[in-house]
Design a protein around this nucleic acid. Sequence first.
DNA 1: AGAGATTTGTGATTTTTTTCACGAAGTAGG
DNA 2: CCTACTTCGTGAAAAAAATCACAAATCTCT
Lengths: 211, 211
Amino acid sequence: MQEKKKIPKSVASRLSLYLREISRLEDEGGDKVSSVELGELTGLTDAQVRKDLSYFGQFGTSGSGYEILKLKNILRDLLGKDNIWHIVLIGAGNIGSALLRYPGFKNQGFIIKEAFDIDQKKIGKCYGEVTVKDVRQINDIEKDRSIKIAIITVPVDSAQDVAEEVTRYGIICILNFSPVILKVDEGVTVRNIDLSNELENFSFILTSAKG
Amino acid sequence: MQEKKKIPKSVASRLSLYLREISRLEDEGGDKVSSVELGELTGLTDAQVRKDLSYFGQFGTSGSGYEILKLKNILRDLLGKDNIWHIVLIGAGNIGSALLRYPGFKNQGFIIKEAFDIDQKKIGKCYGEVTVKDVRQINDIEKDRSIKIAIITVPVDSAQDVAEEVTRYGIICILNFSPVILKVDEGVTVRNIDLSNELENFSFILTSAKG
DNA sequence: AGAGATTTGTGATTTTTTTCACGAAGTAGG
DNA sequence: CCTACTTCGTGAAAAAAATCACAAATCTCT
Ligand SMILES: NC(=O)c1ccc[n+]([C@@H]2O[C@H](COP(=O)([O-])OP(=O)(O)OC[C@H]3O[C@@H](n4cnc5c(N)ncnc54)[C@H](O)[C@@H]3O)[C@@H](O)[C@H]2O)c1
Ligand SMILES: NC(=O)c1ccc[n+]([C@@H]2O[C@H](COP(=O)([O-])OP(=O)(O)OC[C@H]3O[C@@H](n4cnc5c(N)ncnc54)[C@H](O)[C@@H]3O)[C@@H](O)[C@H]2O)c1
């Protein structure tokens, strides 16, 4: 009954990184890892690694570090890696079809179960293991209550509409590739992938460096 | 000679967002915008909008807001939008080719000028306006000193090698899609797009909600 | 078993980022 | 020109995040 200190956002967003590197170490046959080593792998300081992990309990061993298997299981637990997560993707264009073809998601427990498009030329096509359906059938996802995550890869003008629709049908997490801030109900989490934004960050750096 | 207060990282990363929404407003024929309105469009508070912009001077008008054209020009200046930025992409696979085909970058002054791959099946192919070259010719980019930005879309095992190579040839900004933390020299900026990470963030949220 | 080295876990501190809150400046309408 | 309203710019305060630094725990070696 002591599990209730709130986890800072910043910490939560790094768990995935820890798990990735821990898994890599495990694959290489390691069985112990120190906060210094894990810090090097993740690009963080050792202190930050320790502090982050300490939010979830004490499972390191002074003088020797963290047991890889144990740490992996804790992180897997936190991240819900024993579940399979079902995803719907809307917009099977350039980016959308690249995502559909990527086998890596499935290996990590993320299955894109449905894909929708508005374009007759896309509908019926099969990418990876998914056949693209007509977006007018999108309420299909309501029947399958297991789909809580949507990936939106439609053009910017349609993104808000699509977001409203999928949230109506039970989606509460949205990964949005369109360059627009989606207005969603409370309780819905949106993460934006904004590639132009990233590039403009570079041009800002390059421009101010010249100053 | 007073231009020297340091701009916080967090502020810099939002400039692009402001410019995007300001440009949208301009397209719609607007000529003034308040911090409240801009806050709504960007998903930020009005106070934050004002504070962010205030790092660059005072160009709002009390009682009426910001002049869109003026604000746009300031942001364009800061972000170096009067330059054309040249980019090299390495790895013309799923994601890489989706990026090559995207016309949006060019419209925003980002030109993917060269693309390289190691696979004979990819070499010689043309995506968008770029023809994929053999990665063994990658030092071509050294001749073209205008290329400072690289997009890395190779498999995880090659990413570190590619990063080392491109930085040797003058790249100082890297947009990395591979799920690995790149070790680069000081002075090189890396931004990671880690889609599995984003999805795991969702599964963390969904898992802890159930808790 | 003891000495010396390593590494954790965490309060305290510092830094960074966001929010608050209000005076000053400007607008609008008579 | 006066009153009522709007909106900016910004110090001050609060909140969030990162870093420091060290006691305590454990390990290794002899
Ligand atoms: N491709 C990139 O490299 C890239 C880079 C940055 C941003 N983006 C953004 O990502 C989004 C997708 O880009 P893209 O290049 O894949 O575009 P795209 O045009 O190739 O694909 C968009 C797909 O969405 C479909 N669509 C349109 N309206 C729809 C609707 N209402 N319901 C369902 N499907 C609909 C279209 O038929 C098309 O297949 C865009 O918002 C774009 O701005 C893409
Ligand atoms: N596609 C996705 O949706 C997705 C999602 C998450 C992460 N990623 C990551 O993005 C990266 C690319 O993914 P993808 O799906 O496009 O992979 P992909 O296999 O389709 O493409 C990779 C390309 O890189 C080329 N390549 C390999 N080694 C190279 C080298 N040394 N130099 C030059 N080219 C080389 C390959 O020939 C191939 O064309 C991977 O690291 C992947 O983990 C992709």
